[in-house]
Nucleic acid binder design. Sequence first.
RNA 1: GCCCCCAUCGUCCAGCGGCCUAGGACGCCGGCCUUUCACGCCGGUAACACGGGUUCAAAUCCCGUUGGGGGUGCCA
Length: 470
Amino acid sequence: MTNSVVRARFAPSPTGYLHIGGARTALFNWIFARQQGGDFVLRIEDTDSERSRPELIDVIFRALEWLGLDWDGTPVHQSERAHLYADAISQLLAQGDAYWCQCTPDEVKARAEERGGTPGYDGFCATKNLGPGDGRVVRFKVPDEGATSFTDIIRGDVTFENAVLEDFVIQRSNGTPMFHLANAVDDAEQNITHVIRGEDLINVTPKVLLLRNALGITTPLTFAHLPLIVNEKRQKLSKRRDDVSVGDYIDRGYLSEAMVNYLSTLGWGPSDGIEIRPLAEIVQMFRLEDVNKAGAFFDVKKLQHFNGEYIRNLSVPQFVTRSTRWLFDDTPWPAPNFDIAKFEVLAPLVQERVKLLSEVPSYVDFVFLDDPVIDEDAWNKVMVKNADLARDILPYALSVFADCEWNAHSIEVALFAYAEQNDIAKGKVQAPVRVSVTGRSVGPPLFESLEVLGRTEVLRRLTAAVERMG
RNA sequence: GCCCCCAUCGUCCAGCGGCCUAGGACGCCGGCCUUUCACGCCGGUAACACGGGUUCAAAUCCCGUUGGGGGUGCCA
């Protein structure tokens, strides 16, 4: 173990926010590294200056931090190590394993179409012995014969015939290296031992292997290509068409523990069938070789269920703390109206009802709003369709609430006396009071809510509701 | 087109030749609990893609078919 320390890496390209697929890749790398007592390092693959957006690098780091995936050492930025790639390219050129090419993309494409059949580069400049020059790229000379194989921990042996691989570009015409090249160089330079990434990259593996071979890199590198996370149409998650930014899930009130736990069940599952469990246990049980081969659908419904479980497992103070953001920013009520003491009373009741922290405000807004927001559907059902009952109950509530003791239990006894006297279901009796006071037909238990709101305000809202009924 | 990969309930996972009349979870549908809504509890629904082999025995191994996905960039 000492001389074979595992080093796994997550190598995002800062062309977008961290998305679900990237988060899962990072997570599996992290789990594997931690389980093996190895390192988990980061590498920013920003060789394409055209597409890279430096400001996103920090966003990605923060998303990883939110997920709790701590990394070892300082992240490497490919844009800062151009010399390493330049050296490798010079070596390849000197060895005759690469050559300069002056074909434009359009020319390559045109010839391919003319040729019919397989698209791709035809080796047009392979024997021209061109030197550097404006608009010229460097291409790697793929052997015409033979095959490149590797053993994938998840997929077993995978083989590509070299003949189907074109002479691919390793240095752009602007002088920057392509990612295959940077990849081969960096994995060696960073002593990476395991490459764990999405299956969409499996086909670039032979290219990287060919490059490593030509560069004389002999240190072993083990691959594990993870199944893709897919949408309802079973297609690879796309930043454009799918809702996959990790940041968006944070904003919607998902707990990172729930997200990480859920992600761990995509492509893998503990053999005892217990899905919801601490990350530490997952690290213990996880086996890279047990990861599935087939793509997994990202099921938000199931994620929500996990989230609800995690929320309910929080202590009440933790729940209050975690809800902070939704209590102070962008609230439906005027900020000065908020009273944390009142929220804390209702917190345990809200906690077992929400699946997302973002739902918290809608459960307590009536307490901090000057007037409740009336839900029209609820009003129609309870105050219009059942107006007769409401007209009996509201005056009754107004009178008993005026002088009963003001605590949840007494309020309940006072109101439900009506249910017993008139032999009406309690559910029917509480409805008009709930709608009058909270504006909604659903919410936390009514009597605790009334207690928190206070007698004066409850009476005022009840009166207002009677007037509104006309 | 060509290359690569994949295939167990609607979805995620378990299953690694006999313990499988296939198990768990989400969802969905019933029911119980109940002041609403949730929670919790009980029950139900529902799958080994198809066809050939191998074997005493196959969801599990092999081959083919079909279906799906990924790639095919001077993106990663």
